[in-house]
Each structure stands twice: as C-alpha cells, then as structure tokens.
Design a binder for these strands. Structure first.
Lengths: 337, 337
DNA sequence: CTGAAAGCGCTTACAG
DNA sequence: CTGAAAGCGCTTACAG
C-alpha cells in the first residue's frame, strides 16, 4: 500500500499536523523537523492522496475546458494548441484539466457538461463562441470562468483576446504596401466580436490609407454566420463575379481563406499573382496548403497559459474585477500574398 | 451550500446509509423508500461529492490518456478523435480523462506523467509508439493499461489494434485490380509493429496476385524511422529516380502519402494519372489535400470507445488475461488513386 | 430492509 | 513550534 500521512508522521516521530504543515509549507516549522520530515517523504516516495486533500479543503483541483463545437468541425488544432498551453500552466499549479465540448444549440438543463453538473471543477475556461445561456449559468452559479476569443457585448467578463483589430489592420496595410488597390473582405458573422474587430481593422486600414474607400461596402462579403471553407469559396466566387478588379482578399479566418483560394481558382484567378489572400489564426493547415497561406499568427500556447493564469487569480481572489487581457498577433507572410 | 448526503437523509427521514444504498443501487431497498429518497435527491438537485466518494472507495475516478509526442508533431487529429470516442464511453461510466504527452526519449524518473506520479488515475490508455520504459513502469506498478496502435514484440499486453494487415492487403489489391503493375511501398521503421503489418499486407497482396514479385525488395523504401512527409517525399524521389516505371505507391501513413505526392510532383509525375497513391489512417487533411487522398479509414471514435471499455473491464477484473482487440479499416477511394 | 458506527486520508482551528 | 481532536462527505461491514 502507498504510505499515508500517518506513516510519515510515525516514522518522523511527529504528529500528522506537522507533516501536513510542511507539506503545504504554511506557518513556521523548525528547520530541523522540516528537513527530517521532508527527507522521509522523499525516502518513502509519499504523495498526499488527492481525494482526501480535496475533501478536506473543499476544492476539486480541476478546471474545465469547454470548447465550442464549431471549433473542431473543421480541423481542430486551434483549441488543441491552447490546451497544451493551459496544461503547461496547470501542471505548475497542480490542477487537472477536464475537457469537453458544447453544441451550438445548448440547453442548460440537458447539455450541461458533466463536470459542471457534478461541480467537479473550481473554474472553467471557454474557447470560442460558446452559448450565452452557458455563460449566464456560470455567472449565476458564481463559477469562476474566463472566455477565450469571445465576449458578450456590453458585459464585462474575464477574457483573453487576440489583438484582432491591429492584426487585421497590419495585414491590410501590408497588402496596400504591396500595391494592391482593390482589397476585399470575406468574413463570417459580424456578431462575433472577434470577427467584428477584424473587420474594423480592415476598414480602418483602407480609410487611413485612403485606398479603396468608396468600395468598402461592396467589397465586403459578410453574409454568413459561419467562417467555414464553404463560406470562403462562395464569397470569393461572388466577389470576383461582381467585381473582377479585386486583387486582394483579407479573410476573417484561415479556414475561410482556404475556401477563398479554392473559389479564386475556380474563377481562374491565380493566387497570389492575380489576387493576394491573407487569413487569420495560423492553423497548422496553413503551411500544408498550396499555396502556403499568409496569415496572422495567434500565439496559441500563450493564450492557453494566460487563460489559466487569469482563471487561477480569479479563483484565489473571488472579489476581483473582471478584466480582459489581449495578446498580440504576428503577420506571417508566406506564399498566398 | 450544496446539499450533502446528510441533508437528503434528514429530509427523507432515513439514515445516510440508506441514501448511499439507493445512490449506488446496491442491495435491496424497499421500493417506497427508494422512490422517496430519489425524488428528494432530484428535488434538491443533489450530487455526491466526488472527492468524498473517491476517498471512501479508494479509487480516483480518473483514467489517464497518454499520447506519444510524435503523434502531434504533424497535424494532431488522430489522437484527438480517439479522445472523443474515449470521452463518450468514459462519460457513461463516470470517469474523467486526464490527458498528457510523453516524449520519445523518456526517463521514468523525471518524465513520469504527473497523474502517474501522484497515483491519480485508476488506469491508463496509451496511443502510439510510447516508450518501453513507461510500459515497464506500468507493468511493475500493476497499473491497468491498454495500448492503442502499438505493441511490444512477444509481450502480451492489452491492446486495441487496427487491422493493418488486411487494410494494406485490400489497398494493394485495389491497385492491382486497377491495372497497376509496378507498385511500391514507402514506409517508416519496420520496427513499429503496425507499419510492419502494413508492409506484410503489401507484400502478400503482390505475391498472392503474382504481381511485381521479383521487384518487391527494390520497390520498398523503408529506410527511416519516421513516417513523416519528409520521408514520403524523399522516398518518392528516390524510387522514381531508380525505377521510373513505378505506377503506384502504397504509403504507410497519410502523412507519408502527402509527402510522396509532393515528391512525385517534383519529379513531374501526375497523381493519379502516372502514379496512384494510397495512404493509411484517413487523417482530416486527407480530404483537404489536392488531390484528395485515397486511404484506409481507421474508425477513430470506435478505437477510443473500445479502448475505454477494455480498460474498464481490466480495472474491474484484475486477474483478466491480456487480450488484443482488432478493429477493421475501410478502403476509401478518393482522387489520388 | 434499515441504521449506528467506523473508516477513508487529509486540513485546520485551537491549545499549549 | 507542535499535537490532539474535530471535521470534510462519502461507503461499507455489521447488527438488528
């Protein structure tokens, strides 16, 4: 059997309270007993039993990671990289991460993730466009949470954001500097705050540089809610048909961009010769694609780490005012622009 | 505060033992008290506290999922789909899954996954070519485990396998039926049992059909340990240079196949007109690729589910003789063949 | 069929 | 600085 705190106490000739104190290095313990206890712990390879500890402290030691299902209908790397960043930070603080997804159409009664229903987490990190009713539930139940790449208009929740606005601005400015004159936008729903910011960046870059200004509305394809390949493809097809002069398309995500390129090819346009394309996210597919996709790299690991850190702070300071931290993105130019 | 078993007992006018018994529906309880207790549980939305339950039963309620790092150096979907299958089965049995990776070069002293070091799992599922020293550790510590897509020569461990041999055989036979005469193989290390079986399938299909037999050795490119794109590319380049008559290549994985196609293109061979290519795994990239990749579909969700089920059985029947279950794979023909 | 009691392995006031 | 004791919320023989 694995040794318990009692075994350690006996062998060290102290009480279990003392062992517990050195374990959690709280309060003062004489150096010598501390060292003695520690050496015995090491010697017997003792680890406190998780469940016992959690029972006593009334915590779970787990955090939940909830992924919007839309994020892996396509190629699901985005959330995955974020996970590894979180895991890295969680490990240091001795938390385990429980993973699950939620559907678009979400019923708080039935679809509540198991670890929430059973109260098996101390907090939750959510990535993407998660259901509003879920967020309301967390809020109501006072379960600490942080949003990644999402936010609700006019609400102040803890969140990690990418610098969508500046990323888009930089990308479009790069297109301008490369001599592109007729720069279009293909995007999903402008209801998604991230997409909205990317669109603002696109628009502002054109306006500040006085390029293309009169045409912005016509060159903007934002009909759909999705940001899928299919949307990209039909967007490109539509735009080229209506406005054959278009020579660059900024796409709201990489998946969209890949669809855009396919549409362009169907319309017999060469990328990047005839039309430059830039995406957003830097999904792994970006470098596998032909041509390799120019895009804005989101520091996914960092996002995960930062999300955990923020959550951890919230858990330990329940009164904390909500904050959102924004991480910069990098323009990476490859073959499509 | 969340209600405890005591609250339920009081409100139902029974002892906590009785509540516990209906909770775990063991032993006999009179129908009426059972129903009364259950309705109160529902009414108060009571859930037993995980840590308390686990403390009392001396279990953890967790299983570990260990991924060989090589499996997501490329595009990491394979293990991810398996995860969702496992999660599905785990949910039904009220287990949580803890995820981590192990490096190729693994030192049991230092690199032991945290949940193993702390004994926070009741069992472990490992996918891919995990370190032998890790397996030895699990064996020694008597921690129940099941291997996915891997096995150690001459050892009898619990495992889930794909039908690598028949998959490869079918693919190569398909190539033959399509009139291909000079069918090559590009693979990774034949030390990996799965790759080895795929190679056997390739060889046997040719021999049984009396095609290409004298050339098998020359047409086999198995120099490297990896099954990466890079390997595929250099393999294709090498084979075409030495044997320009080659008109089909069976690749040991999809990643390899993608590399093979790139190599072929560099050598000015058209796929599939000049050379047919078939991969193995059916990674998501397969349908994004141009041309779309023909391959053998591994039922990843099923693999995950089955792995969990097997592990669950082992956990509950410690004496069980090791077994390996093999799942069939389906040939899916797309554009590359 | 039901209850009282011990026990799982920790943490944490409270004394001293 | 250290220890005795209570408590966290369950399960499980054991009586009855």
């Amino acid at each position: 059997m694995a040794p318990t705190i009692k075994d350690i106490a006996e062998k060290a000739g102290v009480s279990i309270s003392t062992v517990s104190i050195v374990l959690n290095n709280k309060k003062q313990v004489s150096r010598e007993t501390k060292e003695r206890v520690e050496s015995i712990i090491r010697e017997m390879n003792y680890r406190p039993l998780h469940s016992a500890r959690k029972l006593a402290t009334q915590t779970t030691g787990n955090i939940g990671y909830i992924i919007w299902e839309g994020y892996f209908s396509e190629v699901e790397m985005f959330y995955s990289q974020i996970f590894w960043g979180m895991e890295y930070a969680a490990r240091i603080n001795d938390y385990y991460i429980l993973l699950t997804t939620v559907k678009e159409k979400f019923n708080p009664q039935e679809d509540l993730p198991r670890f929430l229903k059973n109260k098996d987490v101390d907090g939750v990190i959510l990535v993407g466009k998660v259901p509003g009713t879920l967020i309301d539930y967390l809020d109501l139940q006072q379960i600490p949470f942080v949003l990644i790449d999402y936010n609700i208009f006019q609400k102040k929740y803890n969140s990690i954001q990418m610098d969508n606005y500046n990323g888009a601005y930089t990308a479009v400015e790069h297109l301008i500097l490369n001599g592109r004159k007729n720069i279009a936008f293909v995007g999903g729903s402008l209801f998604h705050p991230s997409i909205k910011d990317r669109y603002r960046g696109y628009k502002d870059a054109l306006e500040k540089n006085n390029v293309n200004v009169a045409k912005i509305a016509e060159y903007s394809y934002c009909k759909n809610i999705e940001t899928s390949r299919a949307v990209g493809e039909s967007g490109a097809l539509y735009l080229i048909k209506e406005h054959p002069e278009i020579d660059a398309i900024f796409s709201c995500t990489d998946h969209t961009a890949i669809g855009v390129i396919e549409g362009l090819q169907k319309a017999n346009k060469k990328v990047p010769e005839d039309v430059s394309v830039i995406g957003f996210d830097d999904i792994p597919l970006a470098i596998y694609h032909k041509p390799k996709l120019s895009t804005l790299r989101v520091p996914k690991m960092e996002v995960g780490k930062e999300a955990f850190k923020l959550l951890h702070e919230i858990i330990n300071n329940p009164g904390m005012a909500p904050q959102s931290r924004v991480l910069g993105v990098d323009l990476v130019i490859r073959e499509s622009s």
